[in-house]
Design a protein around this nucleic acid. Structure first.
Lengths: 283, 283
DNA sequence: GCGCCTCTGTTCGGTATCAAACATAAATTC
DNA sequence: GAATTTATGTTTGATACCGAACAGAGGCGC
């Protein structure tokens, strides 16, 4: 099964000398107007916003700013006050848990299928987990208060965010179990697939060190697992640049948790009215 | 630090020949009227309901039924339709995750500090995880639809349930990380403490087999870890009956995740107006 | 009392992963 | 081009836990 059918969209990102990507990064909506150089896929929209009515969607666009998320940037630490909410477009964000006597571990991933800050809809303006940028790229940023007020008055929005919260909870439980039981090899693949979806590119920036932190394992374990994938011809990598060569291969090398997470999303988040028919929501 | 200061309340439960507890289990509210034989602590109330205004609390009591939860009973499987919501009193419930190619594992615990069915407040009437009774005892049960309607019209209730959902999400993330990193020995202790709080008794029924399923490990690993605790004089056990001898000892033998979970709860769920001043909410 | 079942204790070898090094190799700085 | 930094490759030994099996032991039914 091939979950992601739009890989033709996955153009290669520009790559600067230091291995980080050079993204366009302009005033609001530039991405909608195709004033985009060749390095990024066109028309990346946020799927949640896209699920709203057209007027609502436009309201959001006019009340938010397009910003650039830079790899490694710490948007929030756990328990910070929530000043902004983020709707990722081409960038994406890791949610990390840190407990005493243990390395940190990623328990959630937020790309253009979701948002950072949905817990405002639970009446809590603190951030539940550390949130760091895992893929450079663009996002829409909005004042938390503005978002919160809109939630009060807009029932369809509230329902959408509630559904998203339900999905995120389920994924927390699922990823928790996966991290606990499945082997590093498979978990790495799951993770690459989830990142691939949100990066909208077959190439992204990721050192083994960083991957190790996400999966809560040693760096050298990643080196070994990634080496296997490279030998199998599924990926190539060099000094932080990972290239996805075969999604199909990866999907069969992954544990089922990748597919399960997609299913949970699809089942609970309404498809945008007249969007493409790709099987998964990441496009 | 001693989180639970009410251990004098923790009277010993009645014990039937087959090792299961014989609970009183009567019509609604009998527990409030002290028509209770000596085997259970008096006045166990549900802390969420207790946090509501008095009229609201009474509305809930008059619209729910006191039922008995029997050890091992499967209240829901994952994705079942939610027919009833449960507010545990002396009983408590495990939330289990099952993924492909792995044993099941507990990702949440619901006792009289919480409820089963809070996700209705997210507009979803399906159950996120398998829910099985882990400690026999009483609970208030209410029609899911009745609860749902009440949510619509009662803003303080909605806020309370939202806060509880926030707490549960955080605990999912935290327990997920704990299961992943901390050793069986410590996790077992965390788990005993969490159960002790919800059982309201120093003695409860639990086989090693069952514990192993909760922690996602082999039965013999539990036997070894529990043996250590017994040698240290913190617990005794025999054929399913576990006796807590020293909470203080257990609390210092546990990983910090137990205390962290308590803190999250206390920080986010308002204390009932004129309740006791015990440090944790389980009383 | 006898047999049965459930629960617990213990053993064996196997392995995924850890922890801590150290070696190479590519990019970046000067 | 040399020096430094960053990223990857590889080794070594230790260990927590697994999987499977079997042996005792307490309680229950007959």
């Amino acid at each position: 099964m091939l979950y992601r059918t739009d890989s033709s969209l996955g153009l290669v990102q520009g790559k600067s000398h230091n291995g980080k990507q050079a993204f366009f990064f302009e005033c609001a909506h530039s991405f909608l107007e195709s004033q985009v150089s060749a390095v990024k896929p066109l028309f990346i929209t946020n799927h949640l916003l896209n699920s709203l009515s057209k007027p609502d969607h436009e309201w959001f666009l006019s009340h938010s700013t397009t910003i650039h998320l830079e790899f490694g940037e710490v948007l929030y630490n756990a328990d910070d006050e929530m000043k902004y909410v983020y709707f990722p477009l081409s960038g994406f964000i890791s949610l990390l848990v840190d407990i005493v006597d243990a390395p940190s571990i990623e328990m959630g991933l937020v790309g253009n299928e979701g948002m950072l800050g949905a817990t405002l809809a639970l009446g809590n303006n603190h951030v539940p987990m550390q949130s760091i940028v895992q893929g450079s790229g663009s996002a829409l940023r909005m004042d938390a208060e503005v978002f919160d007020q809109r939630l009060e008055t807009n029932a369809p929005l509230r329902q959408l965010i509630h559904s998203y919260l339900y999905v995120v909870s389920l994924q927390l439980a699922q990823i928790g179990a996966c991290n606990c039981f499945h082997e590093i090899q498979q978990r790495l693949v799951r993770w690459l697939l989830m990142s691939h979806d949100r990066a909208h590119s077959n190439q992204f920036y990721l050192t083994h060190e960083f991957l190790a932190k996400m999966l809560g394992v040693r760096r050298s374990s990643i080196t070994i697992a990634a080496g296997v994938l490279q030998q199998q011809g599924l990926i190539t990598y060099s000094r932080g640049q990972i290239n996805i060569l075969s999604r199909e291969g990866l999907e069969s090398a992954s544990c089922s948790c990748y597919g399960a997470a997609i299913d949970v999303y699809d089942k609970n988040i309404a498809k945008p009215s007249e969007q493409t028919k790709s099987i998964n929501p990441f496009n």
